[in-house]
Amino acid sequence: MEQTYVAERSISPANGAERWVVADTRTYDLHAEACAFLAGLRSKGRSPNTERVYAGRLALYLNYCAQHRIEWSCPGFMALSGLQQWLVTTPLPARSRRTPDTPRHRSQGTANAVMTAVTDFLRFGALHG
């Protein structure tokens, strides 16, 4: 899958604070809504690891939407169901240059964790317009 969005760690030049953002790889623009959601996690006192993991999961969701021409802000039930299936059936990229004997897949539990992040993000978007 083409990586249109990536999760990146950013460091504030003013005070050195670390934050996670979701950026567009083509334009280097930040995805405003995803970054607002991550800022909301920070303001709730969530762990920096939670912010890091959610940033990656949001980037994965946004990439899936871009690849399948789904409007990320208002996916239908079938689009979310398709995402769930895609998460467990699509092989993961190899960890090294060596070709693996059997492809790796996400577990159902990992797919559920991604879906939790996505639904939290969509709920945040619905609450804040």
Rank of each mutant, 00 (worst) to 15 (best):
E2H: 08
E2C: 00
V6D: 06
A7T: 02
E8L: 14
E8H: 12
R9Q: 15
R9P: 03
R9G: 05
S10Q: 13
I11W: 02
I11N: 02
P13Q: 13
A14E: 15
G16K: 11
E18S: 10
W20M: 14
W20F: 10
T25Y: 09
T27P: 03
T27W: 05
Y28K: 05
L30N: 09
H31W: 10
A32C: 04
F37I: 09
F37W: 13
S43H: 12
S43W: 03
R46E: 04
S47R: 14
P48W: 02
N49P: 01
T50V: 08
T50D: 10
E51A: 10
E51M: 09
G56L: 11
G56M: 11
R57Q: 15
L60G: 06
Y61M: 08
L62T: 05
Y64Q: 03
R69E: 09
I70L: 10
I70V: 15
E71V: 15
E71F: 12
W72N: 07
C74Q: 15
C74Y: 04
C74A: 15
P75Q: 11
F77E: 12
L80T: 03
S81M: 04
Q84Y: 04
Q84D: 08
L87K: 09
T89G: 01
T89N: 10
T90M: 10
T90D: 05
P91D: 05
P91L: 07
L92V: 11
P93W: 02
T99R: 13
T99W: 04
D101N: 12
P103T: 03
P103S: 10
Q108A: 12
G109V: 06
N112K: 14
A113L: 13
V114W: 00
V114K: 00
T116Y: 01
T116D: 02
T116A: 08
V118F: 02
F121Q: 08
G125H: 07
A126F: 05
G129Y: 06
